[in-house]
Amino acid sequence: MKIAEVSKKCGVSTDTLRYYERVGLIPKVNRNKSGIRDYTEEDCGWVEFIKCMRGAGLPIEVLIEYVALFQQGDETIDARKNLLIEQRKHLAEKMKDIKKTIERLDYKIERYEAVAMKENKLKRTDV
């Protein structure tokens, strides 16, 4: 699959795909005889994985480390698992913080809505 096809399929720009490969966020993509990238379904799986993890806020450095460990083989399974466990802990804490922020926003919104309702009632009685 050519880079433009992967870009469309995964919803990321061709520049992003090149960047992912250049910095080690995805394993090196095979190239055809002309030197053009030839993505496999496995490569697309890596792109989707990185896209998902970045969307959740995982740092690029952690993901680069994960990919490097993966490329070293099965002897790094425990290290990869521990890396993911640590990132999950960070995300769980982040979710707690986000939940608190949402609750605070809900409270503020309710206050503004109450004020708006009160003002609307006053305007109606003025007639």
Results as ranks from 00 to 15, higher is better:
Ala4Thr: 11
Glu103Gln: 14
Lys33Val: 08
His90Val: 07
Glu119Leu: 15
Asp97Phe: 06
Glu103Thr: 06
Leu17Met: 09
Lys51Tyr: 09
Asp43Gln: 00
Gly57Ala: 10
Lys33Ile: 05
Lys2Pro: 01
Arg22Thr: 03
Asp43Leu: 00
Val62Ile: 15
Glu75Arg: 08
Glu113Pro: 02
Glu21Arg: 07
Asp97Gly: 13
Val62Ser: 14
Ile60Cys: 04
Met1Glu: 02
Asp43Trp: 00
Glu93Gln: 14
Lys96Pro: 00
Val47Ala: 00
Glu42Ser: 04
Asn32Cys: 08
Arg18Glu: 02
Gly45Gln: 09
Thr14Ser: 11
Gly11Glu: 02
Tyr112Leu: 13
Ala68Thr: 13
Met95Val: 11
Lys118Asp: 08
Ile3Ser: 01
Ile50Met: 12
Leu17Pro: 03
Met1Thr: 02
Cys44Trp: 05
Val23Arg: 10
Asp78Phe: 14
Leu91Pro: 02
Ile36Met: 06
Gln87Phe: 11
Gly55Gln: 10
Ile26Gly: 01
Lys108Trp: 04
Leu84Gly: 03
Glu61Phe: 05
Tyr112Met: 11
Gly57Gln: 11
Lys28Ser: 10
Lys121Phe: 11
Lys118Gln: 12
Leu63Asn: 01
Gly45Cys: 05
Lys96Phe: 10
Phe70Tyr: 15
Asp126Asn: 06
Ala114Arg: 14
Arg80Asp: 05
Glu41Lys: 00
Lys81Gln: 11
Leu122Ala: 14
Arg111Cys: 05
Cys10Pro: 01
Asp15His: 15
Arg111Tyr: 08
Ile102Phe: 07
Glu48Arg: 15
Leu17His: 07
Gly45Trp: 08
Lys8Pro: 01
Ala116Thr: 11
Phe70Thr: 12
Phe49Leu: 13
Glu110Ala: 15
Ile85Ser: 01
Thr76Leu: 04
Ile64Met: 14
Gly73Glu: 03
Cys52Ala: 09
Tyr39Leu: 02
Val12His: 07
Leu122Thr: 04
Gly55His: 12
Glu86Ala: 15
Lys8Gln: 15
Asp74Pro: 00
Glu61Ile: 11
Thr101Arg: 14
Arg37Trp: 00
Met95Asn: 03
Arg88Lys: 15
Ile98Ser: 07
Gly55Met: 06
Glu103Asp: 15
Glu65Asn: 13
Lys99Gln: 15
Thr125Gln: 14
Ala114Met: 10
Phe49Glu: 04
Met117His: 14
Glu42Trp: 00
Ala68Met: 06
Gln87Val: 08
Glu119Thr: 10
Leu91Thr: 05
Leu69Gly: 02
Met117Ile: 11
Leu122Pro: 00
Glu93Cys: 06
Gln72Thr: 05
Glu21Val: 04
Lys96Trp: 08
Ala79Met: 09
Gln72Phe: 09
Ile102Arg: 12
Asn82Val: 00
Gly73Asp: 02
Ala68Glu: 09
Ser13Ile: 03
Gly11Ser: 06
Met1Ala: 05
Glu5Tyr: 04
Arg111Phe: 07
Lys108Ala: 14
Lys51Met: 03
Val115Cys: 06
Ile77Cys: 04
Val12Met: 09
